[in-house]
Simulated scan of single mutants.
Amino acid sequence: MNWEYFTQVSFAIQVHIIVAFIALTLGIIMFVRRKGTGSHKVIGRVFAVMMFLAALSAVFIREINEGRFSWIHIFVPVTFFALFETFYYIRKGNLKGHKRAVKGLFFGALLIPGAFSFMPGRTMWMIFFA
């Protein structure tokens, strides 16, 4: 791992990486643990905050497209929408909708863009493989 590269990227990228890895860890924990428990609710709330911070920090990451948003920024509104759905459905008692929204949040707003971040030349590629 190239920690020197991590220390040289912008603060927004550093925050983004840290909260995304925390969200990834919490998401995996939530998928393997029993649902509906007190710890599930606490972990879920922290996961949601980390996803919100990941999406928010992504808004300030614009190094690869001359200061403009790039195609990967489409995952920012996807994340915000999935977060809204997650809380909306659980408040309404719709467990199926909640489960679908959380899976969409985890896979569609965390794993898929996360996989793209490991493309050669991108920051995660440079940190892990350069």
Rank of each mutant, 00 (worst) to 15 (best):
F81W: 12
A82F: 14
A54W: 07
L105R: 04
V102P: 03
I90P: 00
F47D: 00
G67Y: 07
L26V: 03
M119H: 09
I18R: 05
L83D: 00
G104S: 12
H98D: 00
F52Y: 05
G38R: 09
A20D: 06
V15R: 02
L53T: 04
R122D: 09
M119V: 11
L111S: 05
H40Q: 11
A82L: 15
P77K: 01
M1I: 10
F116A: 13
I64M: 13
P120L: 04
K35Q: 14
R100F: 08
V9E: 10
F31S: 11
G93P: 08
T86M: 14
I43K: 02
K96P: 02
F129R: 10
F31E: 12
F80Y: 14
F52M: 10
Y88M: 14
G36N: 07
R62I: 05
E4K: 06
F6T: 11
L83Y: 01
M1V: 12
A130D: 13
F128T: 13
G36P: 03
N65E: 07
E63N: 11
A12Y: 05
K96Y: 02
A109P: 09
I74P: 09
V42W: 10
W3D: 10
M51S: 08
F6Y: 13
H73W: 10
S117A: 15
N94I: 03
M50D: 01
F69N: 04
L83F: 02
A55F: 09
F84A: 12
R62A: 06
F75A: 08
Y5D: 01
K92D: 09
Y5W: 04
Y5M: 06
A20K: 01
I72C: 06
R100P: 02
A23S: 12
M50I: 00
H73T: 10
A55R: 03
I13V: 15
G27Y: 02
L95Q: 06
H40G: 06
A54E: 11
S70L: 07
V46G: 03
H16N: 12
F6N: 09
N2D: 15
A82C: 14
K35I: 05
A55E: 04
F31N: 14
R122Y: 14
F52D: 00
S70D: 14
S57F: 03
F21V: 11
L83W: 00
G97D: 03
L95H: 04
P120V: 11
G114Y: 03
V78C: 14
W3K: 10
M30E: 13
F106S: 04
N2E: 13
K92W: 08
F128R: 08
V102I: 15
F81L: 13
L110E: 00
H98F: 00
R91S: 13
V102A: 14
Q8S: 14
V49G: 02
S39Y: 08
Y5F: 15
H73R: 09
I13K: 08
T86N: 13
A82N: 10
G27Q: 01
I61W: 07
G114H: 06
L95D: 04
T123I: 14
L83N: 00
K103H: 10
F118I: 07
